[in-house]
Design a protein around this nucleic acid. Sequence first.
RNA 1: GGUCCGGUAGCUCAGUUGGAUAGAGCAUCAGCCUUCUAAGCUGAGGGUCAUUGGUUCGAAUCCAAUCCGGAUCACCA
Length: 593
Amino acid sequence: MSVTSIIQSAVIKGLEQLFQKTFTSKDFQINETKPEFEGDYTVVLFTLLKPLKQSPDQLGNTLGNYLLDQQPGLFSAYNVIKGFLNLTISDQYWTDILDQNFENNIYGKKESNGKRIVVEYSSPNTNKPLHLGHLRNNFLGWSIAEILRAEGYKVIKTCISNDRGIHICKSMVAWQQFANGATPESTGIKGDHFVGDYYVMFGEVHKKEIISLTEKGMSKEEAEKEAPIMKAAQQMLIDWEAGKPEVMDLWKTMNSWVYSGFDTTYKRIGSDFDKLYYESDTYLLGKKLVEDGLKKGIFFTKPDSSVWIDLTADGLDEKIVQRKDGTAVYITQDIGLAVNKYDEFKYDQSIYVVGDEQNYHFKVLKLICKKLGLPSSDGIYHLSYGMVELPTGRMKTREGTVVDADDIMDEMINVAAAKTAELGKVKDFTDLELKELYDIIGLGALKFFILRVDPKKRMVFNPEESIDFHGFTASFVQFSHARAKAILRNEDADSSYIYKATTSLLPLEKALLIMLERYPLIITLAATDHNPSLLVTYGYELAKTFNSFVTEHRVLKAESEDKKQLRLRICRMTANVLASGLALLGIKAPERM
RNA sequence: GGUCCGGUAGCUCAGUUGGAUAGAGCAUCAGCCUUCUAAGCUGAGGGUCAUUGGUUCGAAUCCAAUCCGGAUCACCA
């Protein structure tokens, strides 16, 4: 149990004993005491004054006295300032936490709670390579899954490949018309980039055709639809849904190129999946569900034979679920997928890590599933995250302002390598060890930078300024970990050591123990809020406190054997927690750097 | 236009269900490596929490209005 909940229960019990009144944890607040006051945790008394008809001083002193009297092992002092009751927790309590957990490698992780959560993330389109936005998705999804796992959930990571549809046909058409049989092998271009180039080419050709058509007097909207290359893509989609062999062959070939490129990138960033879904499989079930819904009268057909659902009564609009030519739209396959996932995993919750531009889409999806009476609907949760923008604004493919995932990773790793060489602290590393270290530092910096922002908020990524290894960065946390490990390499904490006397804790020692005690709670908060940034902030603050501690106090040459052992244990536990917290973010902690 | 989200230091971001004098990092300035890793530590300057009104013991936080920015309302995904 966390120290805050222990204090909470103690206060509730105290108020009951002293005033014969029952309160709950919601009736008052417990905060960490501000540094400028004496104490560790603070009970905010204001909300209790009226019901108890007490003055702040009266209540504070009565309660403070009571707590100290009842639990001398827990509380060692108190003071009352205005309406704040500042409690000092006894040093013994903190050192007990340390002694019980300094060797515990799974500290902070919870027992299984028997609940299942499906986390869908990454979900790429197979027509272009990953960019910065996808990285935020991958880092977030992977981290959330790991955090929930640590919190005791059975987590299934899934990925849906948006491997079919008009957008896929676009790159296929462009390749067919302009590639002259070129392949990733023949050109030496990574598969996903290769296919992406044809997607871009489609856009360019399309644009030219529109211009030439509008010059002949056609309206812009009409020209967009009537452009020959667009007609070819639409026809290809119809052929694809009909299973035309040559189209299927081309589709399979081009997708395989993309997947081989993705595999490389996924391996590098550490994304992994327990179950892969393909839109090409789920869209048929979706279409079947549309058919069922039509029979049940949940959907309706328009005169041109397109199928719709009317959600105006729920404050939304009419939404198309099937085109007039009978082909599936984006949401069709998502309905099928929701059913697939539920059938296979009987989940308690199904999380979709998808950008906030699709908030409306997921509202509609959940509502449609509900109206269809699918059991999968209740658990649907859209983990919506903000877009990644550049200082110049939103990334735009057409303007060539997209930051490619592979490029930015290369750059981070290169700068990490240069910085490491400049510092010259690992000259004895082999080439292989060095390469691994550069990856750990470069990718760590990138993940940390992206995960430190609250997922819900959009963020600005400045490619130049973001490449930093000082301050609020992964390197800072990794460095602190390596520093602790360096000390422990000289002399490890002695598991069997028993303190000779009760030592009083110095401020920085105590500050570290208070922070270490909070770690399990931080995981819970991050899991509940689906927010890895809480762990980022926590890791940084722990590292920062540790650095001050190491600068201020000697460990190996401590004042006494008791102090030395205490500090070695602090080093050990801090290193554990730093590495563990980073691991939940997908960041490795090197032994040396 | 409807709906939803956001606006905190020059820049990038924190700020638990309302609590004490609003915090970090970067950038700027001043110190600290014969001592367990200086990717570090210590300190300084920097704020009308978009604006106005309201709720109350108390508001960056809750409510309303206004201004600014973004997303969405596609037979794109």
